[in-house]
Simulated scan of single mutants.
Amino acid sequence: MTAPTPAPTTAATTGISTDTSRLKSKDNLDKAGQQFEAVFTGMMLKSMRQAKLSDPLFDSKAIDTFTDMQDGLVAKSMAEHTPLGIGKAMTDFLAKSQSDLNEPTAGSPP
């Protein structure tokens, strides 16, 4: 007879990690802000494309797919090099609730 298997944890059944130690890192918070900025910019570009101010000369599913991929890369590049500021605003707001991130580290200036 085999031993009973333990009940699955929340992370195993939902795929969502319950480990929150990575949230305490300023680098991870900055990276999340940059990714949020990219998603926001991508949604904005997609919305602008859906406005259809004119009829395209060539219209196909392949061109739509290419345009979506191109917009994704443009949004990521914009978030890295010329951000709108929404990602920084989000990280600043979240950092206020994280007392560990507000305190300067031993090697950094105040």
Rank of each mutant, 00 (worst) to 15 (best):
A38T: 07
I63G: 07
P56E: 07
P4Y: 08
S97G: 14
K24C: 09
F58K: 08
P6T: 13
K26D: 15
G72K: 10
S60A: 05
T18H: 06
T18R: 13
P104L: 06
T67I: 09
L45C: 04
T9S: 15
D55R: 06
G85N: 05
L73E: 14
A75H: 02
L84I: 03
F93I: 09
Q70K: 13
T2S: 11
S108H: 05
K52V: 05
V74R: 12
T13S: 12
A3N: 00
M48Q: 11
T67M: 13
F93K: 14
K52I: 02
P110N: 14
P4G: 06
L29Q: 08
A62P: 01
I63C: 02
F93D: 08
P109S: 14
A75Y: 01
M44H: 00
D92R: 12
P4H: 09
V74W: 04
D100S: 13
H81M: 10
N28C: 00
A75P: 03
D100M: 05
D59W: 01
E37D: 10
G87F: 02
M44F: 10
F40D: 00
T20E: 13
A38D: 04
P8V: 03
T9A: 11
M1P: 11
G107M: 03
H81D: 13
K26S: 14
M48A: 14
A32G: 07
D59S: 09
T41L: 15
